[in-house]
């Protein structure tokens, strides 16, 4: 709802900014794909145009404001956590008696609808021992491979970091 209001107020500048950002993003991808061939932009510009058009058609409004500091701190965190999760799975799969003790946990997040929440849900699956199994409005059902690991703390930690990433202020009471 909030998102829609913002769209109607700053509709023009918002749309322009949106197009510009996506244009930049797709140009970067094109650059990565083709390398430094200048000629490729003959096809590149129409292609980027099509991609931007389609992306606008699919998701007309998206308010992206990531914090640079957040990104810088999130990437190492993510890499470390996901390698830990790999090692964790390896350990459990190779242990003689399967070291699994699965269970389900429901978690209510304060992250706003849209990109942050989706990012949150997707990242849970890459964390050690957790897997997001369902998402109903703001409640994430998490499947854990072992009930004994501190899931709650892990997820809360992740949530806070994503909140910093998207410059969201945690709303008291909602998280718990």
């Amino acid at each position: 709802m909030q998102d829609n209001n913002r769209l109607s107020i700053h509709s023009h500048s918002h749309l322009g900014r949106c197009i510009f950002l996506r244009f930049l993003l797709f140009s970067a991808v094109w650059l990565v794909l083709t390398g430094s061939e200048a000629e490729s932009w003959i096809i590149g510009f129409p292609a980027i145009g099509c991609a931007v058009f389609l992306s606008l058609k699919l998701s007309p409004s998206s308010h992206v404001s990531l914090s640079f500091v957040g990104i810088c701190s999130f990437i190492p965190f993510f890499l470390r956590q996901s390698s830990l999760s790999g090692i964790d799975v390896m350990r459990r799969a190779l242990s003689r008696r399967l070291a699994v003790n699965p269970g389900l946990v429901s978690y209510t997040t304060f992250l706003p609808e849209g990109a942050p929440r989706i990012f949150f849900v997707n990242t849970i699956s890459l964390l050690p021992g957790t897997l997001s199994a369902d998402l109903q409005s703001n409640t994430v059902t998490v499947h854990t491979i072992d009930k004994n690991i501190p899931i709650w703390a892990n997820i809360q930690n992740l949530e806070l970091r994503i909140a910093i990433l998207w410059r969201v202020t945690p709303q008291k009471g909602k998280a718990l």
């Binding site: 390698s83 890459l126 199994a133």
Partner: peptide, 20 residues
């Protein structure tokens, strides 16, 4: 692993780290 959920754990995590 015993059921579909735990197998999903194995799939997503181990392989992505390996690929990484």
């Amino acid at each position: 692993f015993p059921d579909i959920y735990t197998r999903l754990h194995a799939l997503t995590k181990a392989d992505n780290v390996g690929l990484g």
